[in-house]
């Protein structure tokens, strides 16, 4: 974006050049542009502004305006009274929430699932990327890539239905266990297994998709390093350990830090579909707490309070994580987009 104040040189001379044939100079490129008043610039760019208007309206209405809705976190909100008429209760909703054991249970469940995902789900794409990268034949590699990227595009309703079919009570796996003489195990409704189930589903859906960024990082490693190492007698494991892993480490650290920014959010759609199958004690996470207590049970104030706390803490985590990424010498997620 730094180019705005550097108009091409040939236009700079426009003022003192003799009046030649009337060239309709692109106004945006003329150096005198800076002298235009705001109104003149708006008039000049009116087409652009009209084109951008629907998008801007969308972001304002559906991303910024809702923030004012958090006023209900401080009210005894009654839908038929509206924002203005509902009683102001100050911090009472927050006090009520923090005294609610179900809230703490959902926080614990959230962190449990996050931790499990970090241990099991986070490394999976790295391993798969290494495996894919080691395939020599491009035909085979492309085929495997096509297969493992596919589940990313399937919605959670379908995925959970498929899992129901394979792992559920009448599904293939329990029947298989039965057939070989083991006890039936219904993974879909066993409460203690829920965090594992959620993690397994996440891996199935997004492990392949997650390899994309690591594959790009692997491609960026200088091939001559491998050659030089091989000539110097480094075996394949040594090359993996000394070249490949250090080579992708910046990306790994960046993604790890960014994951820290979202530890309070675990797949909402995925869990809201399955929470009832295992019950709230094991299946409730912060997001579903807000949904079931607020929208379903009509406790608007307290659940908005949870949403607000979660939003503020979550944003602080994202910003903190981004700063941490900068400290590690990474650009962060948004730096690139702003250029």
């Amino acid at each position: 974006m730094s180019g705005t104040d550097q108009a091409p040189a040939r236009h700079r001379t426009g003022d003192d050049a003799p009046p030649g044939p009337p060239v309709v100079a692109p106004e945006r490129l003329v150096a005198r542009r800076r002298k235009l008043t705001l109104w003149q610039r708006i008039k000049r760019d009116k087409v652009m502004l009209v084109l951008m208007l629907p998008g801007l309206a969308y972001f304002v209405v559906f991303h910024y305006a809702p923030l004012f809705g958090y006023v209900v976190a401080f009210e005894d909100y009654q839908p038929y009274l509206g924002f203005a008429q509902s009683t102001w209760v100050g911090m009472e909703n927050f006090a009520a929430v923090f005294a609610d054991p179900a809230f703490w249970q959902s926080l614990v469940n959230t962190l449990e699932i996050t931790a499990l995902q970090l241990v099991l789900f986070f490394p999976a794409p790295i391993g798969l990327a290494l495996l894919l990268h080691s395939i020599m034949s491009s035909t085979v590699r492309r085929f495997v890539q096509s297969v493992v990227y596919l589940p990313h595009f399937i919605g959670w309703v379908i995925i959970v239905s498929i899992f129901q079919q394979v792992l559920g009570a009448t599904g293939a796996v329990p029947n298989l266990l039965d057939a070989v003489g083991l006890t039936r195990f219904d993974a879909m409704t066993t409460p203690w297994f829920f965090p594992f189930l959620v993690t397994i589903q996440s891996i199935w859906k997004d492990c392949g998709w997650g390899t994309i960024i690591f594959l790009a990082a692997l491609l960026n490693i200088d091939q001559e390093l491998y050659e030089a190492a091989a000539v110097d007698g480094a075996g394949r494991w040594q090359r993996l350990w000394r070249i490949t892993l250090p080579g992708i480490m910046p990306v790994v650290i960046l993604l790890l830090i960014l994951n820290l920014g979202s530890i309070l959010s675990v797949g909402f759609e995925q869990i809201v579909l399955q929470r009832n199958a295992v019950g709230p004690e094991h299946g409730e996470v912060l997001d579903t707490y807000v949904y079931f207590h607020g929208i379903v049970d009509g406790q608007w104030g307290p659940s908005a309070a949870v949403g607000l706390v979660k939003g503020v803490v979550g944003m602080a985590l994202v910003l903190g994580a981004n700063r941490l990424a900068h400290l590690f010498g990474q650009e962060g997620v948004y730096a690139g987009a702003r250029r």
């Binding site: 972001f59 910024y64 809702p66 809705g69 958090y70 607000l308 994202v318």
Partner: peptide, 18 residues
């Protein structure tokens, strides 16, 4: 304005109210 929305999501309740 657009990029900043990647940093936060307003949440279920405020969206519903809007």
């Amino acid at each position: 304005v657009a990029l900043f929305t990647m940093l936060f999501s307003p949440g279920v309740i405020p969206n519903f109210l809007v």
